[in-house]
Computed example of a mutant assay.
Amino acid sequence: MEEKFEVSDILTGRPDREISDKEKDCYDMLEKLGIYYERVEFNIFPETLEDLSKSDEKLKMPGIKNLMFKTKNGSQFFLLVLARNEKLDIKEFRVKHGIPKIEMAKDSDLENILNTHSGAVSITELMYDKDNKIKLFIDEKLLEEEYMRFHPNENLSTVKIKMKDFKEKLIPYLEHEINIL
């Protein structure tokens, strides 16, 4: 029988369970920066929009999606963060920002640059982009919210922090400028 997706109640502090080195990196960074966070955990990887909406309800905020693109020749990379229900017009994005044709980044790109895999891309993984290969774009509407949410470098939980901490502490620490999507 297939396991049913479940979301915890709101939790604070790092997990009591064993966590990966990547997840530890994220919690270490948040604590080093003095950023208060709340989180929810999942029993299994979320696979449907229904699963994802359960975490949205617990966090009391809309879902987001992180899309990683690259130019055809692989010379530029772009992390786009937008509301899950927003449609992205790639052609409009490219024209607005003067970007040549782009394609989704490959799993090998995600692994090599962000130490991650498809389905688990998170803004906090920019900590691994030491060469600043990735240009970050965030939907302006998200930046107007009270909170920002992200996976703590693994997709078995979601963390939320105050937008003020996101803009004033986390982004400067990650050394990636926010470009408006």
Results as ranks from 00 to 15, higher is better:
Asn132Trp: 04
Lys162Ile: 09
Asp56Ala: 13
Leu110Val: 05
Tyr147Asp: 04
Ser20Phe: 06
Glu57Ala: 11
Lys133Met: 08
Asn179Thr: 03
Lys58Gln: 10
Thr48Lys: 03
Met68Ala: 06
Lys24Leu: 12
Pro46Tyr: 08
Lys32Asp: 12
Ser53Asp: 08
Gly119Val: 05
Ser75Leu: 03
Asn73Glu: 12
Leu33Asn: 12
Tyr36Trp: 12
Lys160Arg: 11
Ala105Thr: 01
Asn43Arg: 04
Glu38Gln: 09
Leu59His: 06
Asp109Phe: 00
Arg94His: 02
Cys26Pro: 04
Ile113Gln: 05
Lys101Arg: 14
Ala83Leu: 11
Asp16Ala: 15
Ala83Glu: 07
Glu154Leu: 12
His117Ser: 14
Leu11Phe: 05
Met148Ala: 15
Asn179Pro: 04
Ile138Ala: 08
Glu146Trp: 00
Asp131Val: 00
Lys130Thr: 15
Pro62Phe: 02
Arg149Thr: 13
Glu3Met: 12
Val7Asp: 07
Glu125Trp: 01
Tyr27Glu: 09
Asp139Ala: 15
Val159Arg: 02
Lys106Arg: 14
Thr124Asp: 09
Lys60Ile: 10
Glu146His: 04
Glu175His: 12
Asn66Asp: 13
Asp131Tyr: 04
Arg14Met: 10
Leu33His: 08
Leu33Arg: 11
Met1Tyr: 02
Met163Ile: 09
Pro100Met: 13
Leu181Lys: 00
Asp16Ile: 04
Phe5Ser: 01
Ala83His: 13
Asn43Ala: 12
Lys162Trp: 05
Glu140Ser: 13
Tyr128Glu: 06
Tyr147Met: 01
Asp16Cys: 10
Ile19Met: 08
His176Gln: 03
Arg39Met: 14
Glu3Val: 15
Leu143Pro: 11
Ile90Gln: 09
Leu11Ala: 07
Asn153Arg: 10
Tyr37Arg: 02
Phe150Leu: 04
Gly13Gln: 05
Met1Phe: 11
Met1Asp: 05
Pro152Tyr: 04
Ile19Tyr: 01
Ile19Cys: 12
Ser118Tyr: 11
Ser108Leu: 12
His176Asn: 14
Ala120Tyr: 03
Gly74Asn: 09
Ile161Gln: 03
Ser8Arg: 04
Arg94Asp: 03
Met68Pro: 01
Gly13Cys: 10
Met29Thr: 14
Val159Phe: 05
Lys133Ser: 08
Ile123Met: 06
Gly98Asp: 07
Val121Ile: 14
Lys54Val: 00
Pro172Thr: 07
Val95Thr: 14
Lys58His: 00
Phe137Gly: 10
Ile178Phe: 03
His151Lys: 03
Ser122Ile: 00
Leu30Ala: 09
Leu143Gly: 10
Ser75Ile: 04
Asp165Asn: 11
Lys130Ser: 14
Glu47Met: 13
Glu3Asn: 12
Arg39Gly: 05
His151Cys: 09
Glu2Phe: 13
Gly74Arg: 03
Glu175Trp: 02
Met29Ser: 15
Glu41Arg: 08
Met61Ala: 05
Lys106Val: 05
Ser108Met: 13
Leu52His: 07
Glu154Asn: 14
Met127His: 08
Arg17Met: 11
Phe78Asp: 01
Glu140Leu: 00
Lys101Pro: 03
Tyr173Glu: 13
Arg14Lys: 15
Asp109Trp: 01
Ile44Leu: 07
Phe166Asp: 02
Glu23Arg: 15
Ile10Gln: 03
Val40Gly: 00
Glu18Asn: 15
Lys32Cys: 13
His151Leu: 03
Ser157His: 02
Asp109Val: 03
Tyr27Trp: 08
Ser157Ala: 14
Glu41Asn: 09
